[in-house]
Simulated scan of single mutants.
Amino acid sequence: MTDLIRSAALTHYPDVARSVGLDPKQMMRKARLPLACLEQPELRIAVSAFRRLLEMSAAESGAQDFGLRMANRGGLTNLGPVALIVREQPTVGKAIEALARYIHIHHDGMRLDVRRSGNTVMIALNLRGRHPSALNQSIDLGLATVYRVVQVLCGDHWRPVEMHFRYPAPRNRERHQDFFGCPLVFNSEVDAVLLSAHDMDRRIASSHPLMASYLRKRVEEIDTRPGSWEEKVDEVVRSLLDSGNCTVERVAEHFSCTRRTIHRHLAECGTSFSAILDAQRADLVTKLIEDHDRPLAAIAIQLGFSAQSAMARWFRGRFGCTITDWRRGVRPPAGAPSASAA
């Protein structure tokens, strides 16, 4: 199953790319990422494409600290609903536990394992689907994001005990040293942030128990993430229809695959792209036509119809009445056959 990440992870990519001499849109096309995700932070994109973009950007710019530059612009603010629940925890330790528990809501392919040994706590980073070949920028971004989150909670002067990286030491370690400000261990057995166990007991002055409880319930509702191809495609189709540009090619971009792959996986689920699109259109159109000031031609374009007349034929076949009738409240009785079934 394709792992997805919120496109909010790309919020600062254009600025960072331009700062090292890259054309962000050109790089995103090379990585096969939809440009629309720059304007819609809650869209889901393929983790593999996101990682590819980071590595390509570092290689083409020569900026081997590209992942650190991304983390320096983002951190907690890019994590969306996960950031809210982390900030409201009573202690740094509880906040780190919440981060580890809910990080997958932001990034399907990222896991955090919190382990305590004596006076030291290790936050180990695991990137699902990583390859033996280097993913240095993704590792740097993941570890630096965790580091920034803890720093926000503990204060600007906080530093880790150590930072561990499984990859070999870069030729120039100065950027990593300046960023983390602590001993660095390369060729380690784990990618991890090490901190003092005493840090876990630090109180978070801004926390609010009632707000934390409310946010936990809300985040757990979000945590019912779609698991099958059908559910994930359904989610992306719903997002793209809201933006007015939904095709199977656009959906394939979000999964970093081809349209044939989408069709094949959906067939294995016993459905099709057209069936998912039809169901989402039916759900959205009844909301859109309630606004009598919204032109039907504009609604037809948003839903991807070639013309208003095509939408009108589809609507009558789907609902058994015209759009005008629907707006007037004149609708066929429940269970009556639609025009397409007659």
Rank of each mutant, 00 (worst) to 15 (best):
H292V: 13
H131K: 11
I299V: 12
S19F: 15
I301G: 12
G118Y: 04
M122H: 07
H107P: 01
T91F: 01
L68R: 07
D201T: 08
V20M: 12
A205K: 14
A95H: 04
G317P: 08
P81M: 07
N136Q: 14
R216C: 07
H12D: 10
A71C: 05
H292S: 14
P337M: 09
F305Y: 02
L284H: 10
D113G: 01
Y167H: 12
K287W: 01
D178F: 10
Q151T: 02
Q308G: 03
T286W: 02
S272C: 06
S306A: 12
I123L: 03
Q280Y: 00
T261I: 06
R32N: 15
D242Y: 02
L35K: 02
G270V: 00
Q26P: 08
M110H: 11
A83G: 07
D15G: 08
R175D: 06
L33A: 08
L195K: 10
W314C: 06
M70P: 03
V47H: 12
L53E: 07
V86K: 05
A339T: 13
A252H: 02
F66M: 05
V236K: 03
A59W: 15
L10M: 00
T145Q: 12
E290M: 04
H265I: 02
T322I: 04
D293C: 09
L266C: 06
G93F: 03
N119T: 09
R51I: 14
M70H: 09
I289M: 09
S117K: 14
A341C: 06
L99P: 04
A267S: 14
G244S: 09
R327W: 03
D278L: 03
V146I: 12
R203D: 10
D178H: 13
E231A: 13
V114F: 04
R327Y: 06
R331I: 07
C154I: 01
R101T: 10
G93V: 05
G227I: 05
P332G: 13
R159L: 01
E55N: 14
S228N: 05
F180S: 11
V86T: 10
T324W: 10
D65F: 11
L240C: 02
A197G: 09
R171E: 10
D3T: 15
A17Q: 14
I262W: 04
E174S: 12
H254V: 00
S188R: 06
S306W: 08
V236E: 03
W314V: 01
A8T: 03
D191R: 08
M163Q: 07
G244C: 02
R225K: 11
C321R: 13
C257R: 09
L22C: 11
C321N: 06
I96L: 15
A342W: 13
A100P: 02
V152A: 05
S133H: 03
C246N: 01
Q89W: 00
Q89S: 02
R173W: 03
K30P: 01
G67Y: 02
E230T: 09
R173N: 06
I85S: 10
A100R: 11
D234V: 00
Y147D: 01
S117M: 11
R32A: 15
S188K: 03
R159P: 00
L22F: 10
P132K: 09
R29P: 07
A36M: 05
